[in-house]
Amino acid sequence: MLREFGIDDILLLLTGAKWTVLLSLIAFTGGGLLGLMVAIGRVFGPGPLKFLIECYIRAIQGTPLLGQLFLFYFGFSIFGFDVSAWVAISVAMVFFSSAFLGDSWRGCIEAIPKTQWEAADALGMSFVQKLCYVVLPQAARIAIPSTVGFMAQIVKNTSLAAVVGFVDLLRMGQLVTAATFQPLTVYLVVAFMYFAMCYPLSQWSRILERRYNATHQH
């Protein structure tokens, strides 16, 4: 039953890596969409909505992701909803990233000088036009470094999903270690796979920053 670390184990780790990538994509696209709503609602919404969103952000940023994963996976069951590990983890990761992205994007929107709004007003633009053509494009430039940086964070945070039985790259690494008793080899391969996912992201961030010249805009 015990075996040497071999090509089969690398393939197993790659299946783990596949789930890590997939979960990161879900967390990022879902969290990005919800995060955009959070950011816009937080800046432009009516008072009570602003308050609710503020509570949402505080609640999610103020509790550990590990606790949220437990809550979504086991907590829903207590209330009679049987959610699969996939659903629970995806929901938790989407909420988690939406709170962080939303809050950081709120800052980016608020960083656009008032004069830009006034100039757009002078051109007779509607609110949606001002937002889509003037403010958001400029805010997006400022948002690039922190957003792409957070993407690398998400990739690494997915490893917490192992607590509810989700077999991602890190958990697969533990299982392969248990079966082969070769921790050093296994974790080196695991580390390399994480690096292979995160390094292109930070490189991409650097390229985008240069292309849009984020620091010297406006």
Binding site: M1, L2, R3, D8, M172, L175, A178, A179
Partner: peptide
């Protein structure tokens, strides 16, 4: 268990055995 051989671990295909 899948992390505790010989009671439970994964084989080369990733299936639990033990």
């Amino acid at each position: 268990p899948v992390d505790s051989p010989p009671f439970g671990s994964i084989d080369a295909e990733g299936n639990p055995v033990g």
